[in-house]
Design a protein around this nucleic acid. Sequence first.
DNA 1: CCTATTTCGCTACGATAGTTTCGTAATTGA
DNA 2: TCAATTACGAAACTATCGTAGCGAAATAGG
Lengths: 205, 205
Amino acid sequence: MAGSGNRGRPRDAEVDRRILNAARDLLLSKGYAALSIDEVAERAGSAKTTLYRRWPTKDHLILSVIAQMQGDVSIPDSGDLRADLRYYLKAVAGGLDGMRKAGRGEDADDRSAGLVGELAGVAARHRDLGELVRSVFERRNAVAIGLLTSTTERGALRADVDPVVLLDQLIGPIYYRVLVTGAPIDTDYIEALIDGALLGAEPRV
Amino acid sequence: MAGSGNRGRPRDAEVDRRILNAARDLLLSKGYAALSIDEVAERAGSAKTTLYRRWPTKDHLILSVIAQMQGDVSIPDSGDLRADLRYYLKAVAGGLDGMRKAGRGEDADDRSAGLVGELAGVAARHRDLGELVRSVFERRNAVAIGLLTSTTERGALRADVDPVVLLDQLIGPIYYRVLVTGAPIDTDYIEALIDGALLGAEPRV
DNA sequence: CCTATTTCGCTACGATAGTTTCGTAATTGA
DNA sequence: TCAATTACGAAACTATCGTAGCGAAATAGG
């Protein structure tokens, strides 16, 4: 009703793109703390004002970038649960590892939590951003949980095993290593995780 | 050799105590981001310089406080693995939950990662602090791994199960919930974690 | 074509907070 | 007592987030 909401000069979508790209580049090369809004604006060739018209705070901008980086991980449903999980966990680990390596120039293989850790900090500071982070990861995991549930219904997993807990025991250790211990996450580790989680979950023959 | 290291005006140990106490109080009531060095100094009745002579940066001070808060978790070795694990996991979860509730005034039961998340951020920003955080948690877990190893040697756990992976699947989900999903961690959950991890790890009868 | 409306870039500003400089006080060894 | 050395406190410095005020540009509607 009333006022047409679309009057005046429209926003330039190209500007959004430039800002997000600039922020992403700086985020990957310097990390969160060392990234300044001024620098982002300069690199994007726009004014800080333009930036603040879109995102209310630095944290919001950064989270926007990260959400874009994380994207969606599709998960196959081939019937081979182990293979599907292997694929999914590798995708998750790969995404986190990319963020772990970012944020500190060339020393890529250190054990720093890098961006992931800073993201945890961001989420801890703003309630709304924490919600957003959670929604991203929950949406992602929902697919995996669906897979586990249907596998259970097929009888390939014991009915008394909670799919949520099962997935936690697959995903949790990956985040734990990235965020806390810094231990490496390789193919063998993922295999061991799957074994450990499924051995007790599969019906005894 | 040479210069006696103890010349000049000695540091006032009382000042250290006052600073740490002030920082702890503020940290618990306002969280990391909202805590300012000025405020810490004022509350401690000292100058900021005095503070910076002891800790090179705000992050270092904060981590010092947190390390002091975390303390050590002793783990019993009663022979009943499940009971011992239950005790240990509850202690870990309790410690994290205390930190999760801290740092945001009265709204204690939200799903924010609170201090734990900020701790992850701190560890991500400074290489040396990351090392320190890791050493704290590794020292802690070493006892638990020892327990699992001796249990394996006793034959109560299958020999082909890696104690490190097993512990990751017990501890990881707890950190994951605190830091990422914000899901609650109650007694039932801990029980489910233990079941999920041990069911496949115990020898088939 | 004209006006209202909104965005854009620019410059400057206020505010907050981490970090450093500098002069002074306390302490030890000779 | 004197010199060297270290700790201390006050104030200054600096960086950065976020805002405000401007004129110009772009668009929709009449």
